[in-house]
């Protein structure tokens, strides 16, 4: 199993996200993360799909996406040709016995403390997914109250853009 990141430029209209996710559901694609946002133009939204599977599955996913009239262009992104980032919010139990250990780990990862109360601390961390996984794994030694992560956003390195991709 490999991990693939596919960026999809779609028409910025209501229902388009539903069309895309409905396609993943009915063809049983194994999506591990999905982010959606507006882009530099209000005509388009950008969907970033993180997907685990084989090369064939990825090709099938791209081919199926191309059949949706609302999909404008698709670009496969990988570590070599792109920069990726993800944001994590994690709420830890604030226990005097572990407080210092948690803070030391957070400092080492340069996680930012966003909220501090008697019973809880919320940290924010940005970085690639591996880094976020590592931090979460470290925190598992203590009591995690809640986790929320955004999924990957990814842009190609250099000046080329997804809009320049022509249909296969």
């Amino acid at each position: 199993m490999n991990r693939y990141i596919v960026a999809v430029l779609v028409n910025n209209q209501f229902g388009v996200l539903n069309r895309v996710t409905s396609l993943f559901r009915r063809r049983q694609f194994n999506i591990s993360a999905l982010t959606v946002s507006e882009t530099e133009s209000n005509e388009f939204s950008r969907i970033t799909v993180t997907f685990e599977g084989e090369e064939d599955n990825k090709q099938q996913l791209i081919n199926q996406l191309y059949k949706l009239p609302d999909v404008c262009s698709i670009k496969e992104l990988n570590n070599d040709n792109s920069v990726s980032s993800e944001l994590l919010l994690i709420k830890m139990k604030n226990d005097p016995a572990t407080r210092e250990d948690i803070r030391a780990a957070a400092d080492a990862f340069k996680a930012k403390s966003m909220d501090y109360s008697r019973d809880s601390i919320v940290f924010q961390l940005t970085g690639d997914s591996r880094r976020i996984d590592d931090f979460i794994n470290l925190m598992r030694d203590y009591t995690i109250l809640e986790i929320c992560r955004t999924g990957i956003v990814s842009l190609e390195k250099g000046s080329s853009t997804i809009r320049k991709v022509t249909n296969l």
């Binding site: 064939d56 090709q59 081919n63 199926q64 296969l168």
Partner: peptide, 17 residues
Amino acid sequence: IDGSELSKNVGANHGLR
């Protein structure tokens, strides 16, 4: 004409969309 049919069920040595 539909590229998603190529190698969907049976692998194609030469898949022409």
